[in-house]
Simulated assay, not measured.
Amino acid sequence: MTKATEEAVVALDRLMGHFQVQEDDTPDVREYKESIVNGLSCLGQDMHKLDEVVHIHPGDTCTHYKGGQYHYLGLATQESDGTPLALYRSMESGILYARPASEFFGVVVVEEDGQESHLRYRKVE
Rank of each mutant, 00 (worst) to 15 (best):
S102Y: 02
S117P: 12
Y72E: 03
E125T: 07
G67L: 10
S93I: 08
R30Q: 12
L75P: 08
D46Q: 06
A101I: 04
H55M: 04
D113K: 10
S117F: 13
L15E: 01
G106E: 05
E6F: 12
E6K: 14
D113L: 14
N38W: 00
E125F: 07
F105P: 00
G82T: 01
H64T: 08
H48C: 12
Q45S: 14
H118E: 13
A101C: 13
E79K: 11
S41I: 09
Q69S: 15
G74M: 13
V37A: 06
P27W: 02
G94A: 08
G106L: 05
Y97E: 02
T77K: 13
Y121K: 09
S93H: 08
Y88P: 11
A11C: 10
M91S: 13
R14H: 01
Q69W: 04
A8M: 04
Y97H: 11
H48E: 12
L87E: 13
E6I: 10
D24R: 06
V21E: 00
E111C: 10
S41F: 01
S35N: 14
Y97N: 11
G106P: 01
E79W: 14
E31R: 08
K66R: 13
G82Y: 10
M47P: 02
D81V: 07
R122K: 15
V54K: 00
P58E: 10
I56D: 07
